[in-house]
Amino acid sequence: MTARDFILKELQRKYTLDKETDIESFNYLESGYIDSIGIIQFLVSLEEAYDIEFTDAEIADPSFKIVGQLAQLVERKVMENERSKAGNGKES
């Protein structure tokens, strides 16, 4: 499953997004799809599914709240992970 699909599935656990919604620029916090109670579970589920860890700076960045940009961040971190694993593999 792509990061974008995973995020959309998690966001819609309580409410289905309107078909008209522009997903790429959708702010899931301002629209209340994730609230201050649900944010931790959302983040940890995402980290676990993709074996990544967000830094405090990444979480604090305004782009983190936007579905499209969050999906890109996840994909970037997954690629970095893979590159670093591949790099480690060569050394050993």
Partner: peptide
């Protein structure tokens, strides 16, 4: 992180530490 994952998988959103 291990504790967070255990909680995220087995508890509801409002129960997360």
């Amino acid at each position: 992180r291990k504790i967070q994952i255990q909680c995220a998988k087995n508890l509801a959103d409002y129960q997360q530490p």
